[in-house]
Design a protein around this nucleic acid. Sequence first.
DNA 1: GCTAAGATAGTAATCAATTACTATCTAACC
DNA 2: GGTTAGATAGTAATTGATTACTATCTTAGC
Lengths: 202, 202
Amino acid sequence: MENNPRHLPADERRAVTVKSVVALAGSQNPSEITTAAIAKHMNLTQGALFRHFPNKEAIWQAVMEWVAERLLARIDRAAQGIASPLSAMEAMFMSHVEFVIEHPGVPRMMFGELQRAEPTPAKRMVQTLIQRYGERLHCLIEKGKTSGELSPTVDNEAAATLFIGTIQGLVMQSLLAGDVARMQIDAPRVFAIYRRGIASAQ
Amino acid sequence: MENNPRHLPADERRAVTVKSVVALAGSQNPSEITTAAIAKHMNLTQGALFRHFPNKEAIWQAVMEWVAERLLARIDRAAQGIASPLSAMEAMFMSHVEFVIEHPGVPRMMFGELQRAEPTPAKRMVQTLIQRYGERLHCLIEKGKTSGELSPTVDNEAAATLFIGTIQGLVMQSLLAGDVARMQIDAPRVFAIYRRGIASAQ
DNA sequence: GCTAAGATAGTAATCAATTACTATCTAACC
DNA sequence: GGTTAGATAGTAATTGATTACTATCTTAGC
């Protein structure tokens, strides 16, 4: 099963590094992950990491690039082919939650990165990720209004903010309970309230 | 205006320390605040801090105690004397947002503390704060149901989670925009959706 | 003048990053 | 096709900077 040859091509090694950081962030404070811890997790010496990344900042950038790519692909796939905008939003929501359950460290890394004072490459990547996320939401909300599923009085920006905040709230609850899987059960319950908040009255 | 005598009684010095941490957290990543930075901000040498706190952990604990006391007092005062449970929730929401605007570092410290792996005293303080916050919400939601203002089908737990998540979403937006004051404008817009999600149909 | 509070000047530990060296893979060449 | 030279990837030890924390000396204030 476990097959980890000592030598790996550079691109594969970088991929393993990213996965290691994501895994570590699932069980410890992302800001406290050291290069030594990353190396240990992937059975490598600490110095070897810097053969593949110029510095630690570059590692975090690579991680956030991986996150952005995977998350957007996931929500796009979830919404694909669903005619009803509201149902598409719900599918997006649930697939996002599933992604977070698979990778609990991700939202914590994102939030941690956002509150950096300096605009690091990783922070910028998070910003563009959320921007693109918002574009998809705005599109669906507009479609929902024209289709009549959403109330015409809905405040688009506020609805997008609350959509993401809803997930953030679930993450916080899971941190409080120390139980990530609970999100799976709580997510539909919370989304039901959100749905009621934006849907047109039957 | 500025009156800072070199020598201060211990309790006053501790209070100044807490305020300094809260202020610093407003403009930089809370997890990167060093004891040296705290001391510099209050015109003190780094070593002198340890005359008043046994270690850094104790400083953070004191900060979170301050936060818990102030925030709960604030929302209690806001809800006080408001007959309508929904209006009380809105007042609570807005006073919480105001508190965050005054102290932007607070929600970031709280979230950062929650995702610590080890159960530090500060983390436990955050947990009990949110627990008490939740009690107040549950109480209002129940009252809202009996008064008929809230839909009888509302999921209490989900509603409480979403209430806090709504604020978390606003905080994230303010981090993205780099503009805390925007929350003042966005808050009522976002709460309107939440309100619609839990209120009984007209 | 005694005590609480602060300054000064450390210590030990930790961290990212670098260095000199070694192992392994790959491809050119006879 | 086997040998070898160069490129790639990894090790182990070390560096300088930073950190929380402490020991010792100094001073302000009742």
